[in-house]
Design a protein around this nucleic acid. Structure first.
Length: 330
DNA sequence: TTAGGGTTACAG
DNA sequence: CTGTAACCCTAA
């Protein structure tokens, strides 16, 4: 294990004149190459990529246009290293810190208790004090029940995302959409009912067109979505942007939701499922009522939306509870 | 291209 | 000064 104490081939490097001169080089200013700290978005994207393609497929993840937007400045090796670090931090001790610590002091077990499958979101903690907390909060959901009129819900985006990705000429039917979403993300057992209701409201509002049992996105809304602006917008450049500012806002937003959902799925244990299912059930009832009353009463629909928002809020609450690490240093 | 070991830089 | 995260290099 430790017979490789060979003389490291790294001693004299072409280091810059004096790195000590620069101290406050957190995020921006990648003059030479200080230290590109990972942002929450990047972590989320990485986790989402691993969740989809599996660990080890760094190159594949990087090829995905959705993730490449966020991880454009990272190499496959970077992904690998970061994943290693994340695993070490999330799980007790993967293999690296263990060896390291075990070698130094084999009597340090102050860690009270570690859930074998806790997986709390370890995103926070490396946050720069710049601009990160806000986008993260946004990507978690839309707790703005007191919003203007009707807040865009996450399921809406999921449905649109599914249809857009399926790319079926003539649109996709409900089953295809359901299969796609269920395959990609974690879905509650009564997800199909929710989807049916959502599909109906989306069609009613004109965001989707229903033709012969198939739903498709009207060309008009292909690019710009007035409804999203305001709630789901965010500038995708936490730090420097050397070149290529061509990142589509919509794409970035979608990927963020993507990543966030995948992350949630990754961390959701049976506990989360139980709590969430209960909340979702209430939303389902409200949605079903709305489905019937929507013919003439739109107030019920808004109520259903609120119920659904509450369901998501429940998930977030649980999530917060899990990730309550209180990183306050000593 | 990926997994692992080793080094440098930053924060406490 | 120590621990951790990002970076780097190399074998498989």
């Amino acid at each position: 294990m430790e017979e490789r104490i060979e003389s490291s081939s790294r001693h004299t490097e072409v280091k810059s004149g004096g790195p000590d001169s620069l101290k406050k080089v957190a995020g921006f200013l990648s003059m030479g190459a200080p230290k590109q700290k990972w942002t929450s978005e990047e972590e989320a994207a990485l986790r989402a990529g691993v969740d989809k393609y599996g660990p080890g497929k760094w190159r594949t993840i990087l090829k995905d246009p959705v993730f490449s937007v966020i991880l454009a400045l990272r190499s496959n090796v970077d992904l690998k290293d970061k994943w290693r670090n994340m695993s070490v931090t999330a799980n007790g001790w993967g293999s690296r810190e263990k060896a390291r610590l075990a070698l130094k002091k084999s009597q340090h077990f102050s860690k009270h208790d570690d859930n074998p499958l806790a997986l709390s979101t370890v995103v926070n903690g490396i946050d720069d004090e710049i601009v990160d907390a806000k986008p993260l909060a946004m990507s978690n959901g839309h707790l703005q029940i007191t919003g203007p009129k009707r807040t865009i819900s996450r399921l809406d985006n999921l449905v649109m995302d599914a249809i857009a990705n399926l790319k079926e000429p003539g649109g996709s039917n409900k089953s295809a959409i359901a299969v796609y979403i269920e395959d990609q993300y974690w879905a509650p057992p009564n997800f199909k009912r929710l989807l049916s209701a959502k599909l109906k409201t989306l069609t009613a509002s004109g965001k989707l067109v229903k033709i012969k049992r198939k739903y498709l996105i009207p060309p008009n809304r292909m690019l710009v979505e007035e409804r999203n602006s305001g709630v789901l917008l965010l500038e995708g450049k936490p730090r420097d942007s050397p070149r290529s500012e061509r990142s589509d806002v919509r794409l970035l937003t979608r990927s963020q939701i993507d990543a966030e959902l995948a992350k949630m799925r990754n961390m959701s244990a049976q506990e989360a499922a139980r709590v969430a299912a209960q909340a979702v059930a209430e939303a389902e009832v409200a949605m079903a009522e709305a489905e019937e009353a929507a013919r003439e009463a739109e107030a019920a629909e808004a109520d259903a939306e609120a119920a659904q928002a509450f369901a998501e809020a429940a998930m977030m609450t649980l999530k917060s509870r899990n990730s309550s690490k209180l990183v306050a240093q000593g």
